[in-house]
């Protein structure tokens, strides 16, 4: 899994509660600031990806509205991996998987 770097400016922004003088105008925010919002706890359902049936077709990668699916190489083959820090459990990946490789399961810690 790639390292998700949150911009320093954004960290300060969240922790320091900037006022009008310091805040950039127009409500613009630095790129990658959404790494700072871990939305993984929004749902109890999480995709469990069966790597024996996953073909690495990337359908789930494109359908994921939160970019929480990554494609990684496992033993020389492309496989989908879900990042539970950001996955909101919407189940789109499971719906779209042509190979029924994704199952939504309730996670109890």
């Amino acid at each position: 899994m790639k390292e998700k770097i949150i911009p320093e400016e954004f960290k300060e922004w969240v922790s320091e509660k900037w006022g009008t003088a310091k805040l950039p105008i127009g409500g613009t925010v630095p790129y990658h600031s959404s790494f700072g919002f871990k939305t993984g706890d929004w749902s109890a359902l999480k995709p469990i990806i069966d790597h024996t049936t996953c073909t690495g077709c990337m359908d789930c990668f494109y359908y994921c509205p939160d970019s929480a699916i990554e494609i990684v190489e496992i033993e020389g083959k492309r496989k989908a991996v879900a990042d539970f820090d950001y996955c909101k459990g919407c189940s789109l990946c499971a719906k779209h998987c042509k190979f029924d490789a994704i199952l939504m399961k309730e996670m109890k810690e």
């Binding site: 509660k17 006022g19 805040l23 105008i25 127009g26 409500g27 613009t28 925010v29 630095p30």
Partner: peptide
């Protein structure tokens, strides 16, 4: 890169 038009809630909307 920057994000334009992002969601801004109670904590920053009023400053903007």
């Amino acid at each position: 890169a920057k994000t334009f038009g992002s969601l801004v809630l109670q904590d920053y909307y009023m400053e903007i």
